[in-house]
Design a protein around this nucleic acid. Structure first.
Length: 199
DNA sequence: GCTCCGATTATCT
DNA sequence: GATAATCGGAGCG
């Protein structure tokens, strides 16, 4: 069976099963590759924290499409974050890639991430990960079985930890963040912050 | 149109 | 810990 079929089968499952299984996989964009160490699950229309919670819009249209494509969104006026769309198809479920370790193309990644003081910071955080891998608007909707941007499943991991998702106002209690123990690239937990409100 | 604010990061105290 | 940076999506009217 070709690897693309493996990947499609993996991603077709329900998001809460797919998300932890993506840990240890590798996202590669040309010369730069990143081993994923931290993800979050977003459960489509059932999930108040998801961009898809209020139905389909031009921005989130990719989430409502085929599993295995990349949903890239722009936020805070300057950052991109990326999600892997997964199954069941048309439920708009997706897995946010929050952090990883650069395992190839370290020099290129360091040039893109000029503010990173150590290799640990190259892809620690969803926007940093996208910057290191040069993922932006042009990659929204990209099929991850197609070069030069591909997702490569890894061997099963030994242990997965879970906890609340980072930075959400809605449904902050659902323990749908998954990460690998002992990985320095995993981002620190930070509750939702509000702006323009004095306590 | 207009307003609010975000699945963040870098930098300052 | 606090906050600026910076812009487009989404809600409202």
């Amino acid at each position: 069976m070709p690897r693309s079929a493996d990947l499609r089968a993996l991603l077709a499952g329900p998001v809460l099963e797919v998300a932890p299984r993506l840990l240890g996989s590798t996202l590669r964009h040309g010369p730069v590759a990143c081993r994923i160490t931290e993800v979050e699950a977003y459960d489509g229309a059932n999930d108040p924290g998801s961009h898809a919670a209020r139905g389909r819009t031009p921005r989130n249209a990719v989430m409502f499409g085929e599993p295995g494509h990349l949903y890239v969104y722009f936020t805070y006026g300057m950052h991109f974050c990326c999600n892997v769309v997964c199954g069941p198809e048309r439920t708009a479920s997706a897995v946010l890639l929050r952090a990883g370790a650069i395992v190839a193309g370290r020099e290129v990644a360091r040039e893109r991430r000029a503010t990173a003081r150590t290799d640990r910071d190259l892809a620690r955080g969803p926007a940093r990960l996208c910057q290191a891998l040069s993922i932006g608007r042009d990659q929204n909707g990209h099929d991850l079985t197609r070069e030069p941007l591909v997702l490569e499943p890894g061997p099963p991991v030994r242990e997965v930890l879970t906890g609340p998702r980072v930075g959400l106002r809605e449904a902050p209690d659902r323990p749908w963040r998954f990460w690998l123990p002992g990985e320095p690239s995993v981002s620190a937990y930070r509750p939702a912050t509000r702006r323009g409100v004095r306590p």
